[in-house]
Design a protein around this nucleic acid. Structure first.
Length: 534
DNA sequence: ATGACCGTTGGCAAA
DNA sequence: GTTTGCCAACGGTCA
């Protein structure tokens, strides 16, 4: 049978290592590559102009690369539920292909689309290519539960062997029997929209540091993989959060949108490592891809992963509701220059170093402001070019000591932490230029500078820049005590027998479930095991 | 089963 | 300038 195929791009905005796209081209007479853009979406969810720009550039690049294959990208306006029945009929579609997406929202959406496809006699092909491994296999291999520690994750992955090798991009030969019917009128109807069409103000864009798209991603990858000594010595904790240009690859936005395949990245690293001594997970570049895998697996297997309530791995904390503190944090007006410089870089450039994320995340939550990690998650979701649902939720739980990481007495200092790698405060001077004339000894704590120094610097604290909204040395200690209380309410740690949840496991989790008003862990993991087997 | 071990990236003072 | 031990003390994993 010769097919008329739709390949549906969602993440995975690339031609390389795209097995679902390849499947679409097999025995195919007509290929329709589509991306669905819901024009109402921006009203429901805050996404920065920077992030929209990255997406639109990725779509533009995809369209250009498809043109080389004699094809085009159709950017379809609407929702999947509205759009697919129309397209199935209009294009007489017989096959729909897309990449597996493991996020709960996506799984539900894709299940609905599968139903629509079946109603229209459209065959559906899904391929794993966003993650290194099939997350369901990882969960199954770990007795039906996502690994909760990195060491455990490594053990499980070791038993699965190295990730699948990436597949090649479609070649003109792959496309020789297959065409994309494109008409000039489609330029307006199915073209890549402008920021204005999405209701975004181009004036609010920051500097154009990280152009979106597969072409840019592969160039950046090549550039970094040539630095073999640097790649082999890479240790994440040794890189600097406050260097004036990024101390890491900044490939994360490209991996998030799938402009760069994680598997392609993994195998390129393996080539660089081969025959040479090199760093290892968790700190190596391979290790960074495994962190992504770790949180993707957690996000797929743990219910309510982006929330505190109903999330069985998340400590239930009595976070404060403090709109003024939250606003000050998100707008870079806490009075702590290191924190405010990071938040300014985030807002203007859309990317900050991982350790900088640690500093501001700790400050917002358990360190200083005692505001829920869910609020920080929303701000990162809006502003980070690389905001990825599972990673964002997982890392916020980590930093707030709500899950995965539990040594809540280790608190980052908003003053001392940055000094370790930037004694002179050049990073602060760059992002908070009104502080740049403070001497190095006062730049991290300008409120302690004598009035004469503030006058000489041309910046009076309390007038031109806020005084600190909290006293770190005081709230830090109070917050550690509050964390102690939250952990004490947790009750005994629950153990889960995945094969056959026994009485003891149920009894143990009952106390905690009652206290937290959440379903028992054993019940949840039983459900996961069952659904994972079908 | 119970205890020991250890965890990507803390801060600080003392040596 | 680097290394060490203390602060007060977490949970998941594994033997």
């Amino acid at each position: 049978m010769r097919h008329r195929s739709i390949h549906w791009f969602r993440k995975g905005l690339r031609l390389h290592d795209n097995p679902a796209l390849l499947a679409a081209t097999r025995d195919c007479t007509e290929l329709y590559p589509i991306f669905i853009l819901d024009p109402w979406f921006p009203r429901n969810m805050r996404v920065s102009a920077n992030r929209w720009r990255f997406l639109l550039e990725a779509l533009k690049d995809l369209d250009e690369n498809l043109k080389v294959l004699n094809s085009r990208l159709f950017v379809v306006r609407g929702t999947p539920a509205e759009v697919f029945p129309v397209l199935f009929r209009k294009w007489k579609v017989t096959r729909l292909t897309f990449e597996v997406d493991t996020e709960p929202y996506s799984k539900q959406r894709d299940a609905e689309v599968e139903c629509l496809a079946s109603e229209h006699d459209v065959q559906v092909i899904q391929k794993v290519s966003n993650t290194l491994y099939d997350v369901d296999r990882v969960i199954a291999e770990n007795n039906g539960k996502p690994p909760l520690t990195y060491v455990r994750m490594q053990t499980v992955l070791a038993s699965l062997g190295p990730p699948t090798r990436p597949v090649q991009a479609p070649t003109p030969e792959d496309m020789s029997d297959c065409c994309t019917p494109w008409k000039p009128a489609y330029e307006e109807r199915y073209g890549v929209p402008t920021l204005e069409e999405l209701g975004q103000d181009p004036e609010s864009l920051g500097p154009h540091l990280y152009p979106g798209g597969e072409s840019e991603a592969l160039q950046r990858l090549d550039l970094h993989m040539k630095r073999t000594v640097w790649v082999c010595n890479f240790k994440k904790p040794d890189t600097e959060p406050n260097s004036l240009s990024p101390s890491t690859t900044v490939l994360s936005p490209y991996v998030k949108f799938g402009c760069l395949s994680a598997r392609t990245f993994w195998w390129r690293l393996a080539e660089v490592y081969r025959g040479k001594p090199h760093s290892a997970p968790p700190v190596s570049l391979h290790g960074q891809l495994l962190w992504r895998e770790f949180f993707y697996t957690a996000g797929a297997g743990i219910p309510n992963f982006s929330r505190m309530e109903g999330n069985p791995v998340c400590v239930q904390v009595d976070w404060d509701d403090n709109a003024a503190y939250l606003k000050a944090w998100s707008e870079g007006r806490t009075g702590y220059p290191f924190i405010d410089a990071i938040m300014t870089q985030l807002r203007t450039e859309g990317w900050i170093h991982h350790l900088a994320r640690h500093a501001v995340a700790c400050f917002l939550t358990r360190g200083d402001l005692w505001i829920s990690w869910e609020e920080g998650q929303k701000v990162f979701e809006e502003l980070l070019l690389d905001a990825d649902w599972s990673l964002n939720a997982g890392n916020w739980q980590w930093l707030s000591a709500s899950a995965f990481f539990h040594q809540f007495f280790r608190v980052y200092s908003p003053v001392a932490f940055g000094k370790k790698t930037d004694k002179n405060g050049d990073y602060i001077r760059k992002y908070l230029p009104f502080l740049k004339r403070f001497p190095a000894e006062h730049i991290y704590e300008p409120w302690k500078a004598p009035r004469s120094v503030q006058q000489a610097a041309g910046c009076i604290i309390g007038r031109d820049y806020p005084k600190p909204i909290v006293v770190h040395e005081v709230v830090r200690n109070e917050n550690i005590q509050r964390m102690k209380v939250a952990y004490a309410k947790r009750g005994p740690p629950s153990t889960v027998d995945a094969k056959e949840p026994g009485q003891s496991a149920l009894k143990k989790s009952r106390k905690r479930a009652a206290a937290a008003a959440t379903p028992s862990v054993a019940d949840i993991f039983t459900k996961i095991t069952k659904s994972g087997k079908n």
